[in-house]
Design a protein around this nucleic acid. Structure first.
Lengths: 117, 117, 117, 117
DNA sequence: GTGGTCTAGACCACC
DNA sequence: GTGGTCTAGACCACA
């Protein structure tokens, strides 16, 4: 796995796993790969995986069953979607729009790209 | 002057100065505050200002008249606008659109925010 | 290590490292000495080495694996050769030819030196 | 007059004047513009012109007639040509050839550019 | 006065 | 351990 070097790896991991859950690759309620296993697959330091898992637990997307491992929450997809949508709509879109206006980029330009992809 | 800690100061300066030029606070063809002067005003190390100025020279937004100081290029505004528009359209918008689709945010949602602000 | 005083050290380093890569002393894909290590060996300030490394990253000759260090790109040799050839053919040769003509130095003179060495 | 910022202005001036003499714009034996006059025309600091004139005197290309001004030497053209040719053939060409070989640029490539311009 | 280079040393996040 | 940022201060050539 290649990681874009501009962001901390643990954050890229954090994002990636959420995508995997949304896409059903990591099913809700299912057990998550162990830190060592995932770290081995991705050729990444175990501590780095650890850190991503920790943050996912803080957001209640993963939960720990003592001695059995980490599991995906049953409402994980919904949680992820709600959280990120909220962040996007309340913060990122307004900020993005502001920048577009500063640069005099028209709505049409945006729509073109939107429809193209 | 307050600086956001999440981005290097010299980059924030780099962005800020471009905004100032676009807004006409630093007129095209005019002389720019000396490294030491600006550093003093902003309570920042001269080297940090230098770094911002350096990058602006690389983009041909500023140019050096030896021994006299740095000046804003005559076509600075156009340059800045073109550069940033290019960056926005080619990279940021596609990336943003991708994220919107992942989060199932509709175009309408975006348009609403766009028209509101 | 001795440095020529007429050019900035970090630029001399920038050139030197490219030569080392071309000659295979710093193999493609391999790890590069750490900033501190190289600085120690060359008896130079770490910041100076950093600056050279920085520019090599901008040219994609080196890349950063976060927390592990800097590495030589897999296509580094090709990149260096292409870049420098381009610079040479587009800028330096025409300029050199212009000077030769001003000084009325014939092509034969040049060819003689070329074949001799 | 525009000066390329990569070289000190006084050196650019030094080169420029020699070219002018070679091309006959400043005739041998003729009087040279005063420091103030030339500085005014070129929009340059008088001290800068001064410095160029000084170096030209050191090379005996200009000479001073006390109270009357500076004059171009009678053998100025020959002097300039000989000096620069020597420098070119003994130092610059070998160095240039070395770099060409490092970059695997063929003699043909050079000849092409030479004949084109 | 100007920009620019270099040093020595501190501090940071990341791995 | 790694790269990267920032500071404070010195020194330089150029104009």
């Amino acid at each position: 796995m290649q990681f874009n070097s501009e962001k901390p790896i643990y954050q890229q991991l954090f994002d990636l796993i959420q995508l995997d859950i949304l896409e059903g690759k990591w099913p809700e309620g299912g057990r998550v790969p162990s830190v060592r296993e995932l770290a081995g697959n991705l050729e990444v330091n175990p501590g780095t995986v650890m850190r991503a898992y920790e943050q996912l637990q803080e957001e209640a997307i993963l939960f720990n069953q003592r001695g059995r491992g980490l599991f995906v929450a049953d409402n994980a997809k919904e949680l992820i979607l709600k959280n990120q949508q909220k962040e996007m709509i309340q913060k990122e879109i307004p900020q993005f729009v502001k920048k577009m206006k500063q640069l005099q980029i028209s709505l049409e330009e945006f729509v073109t790209v939107f429809n193209r992809s």
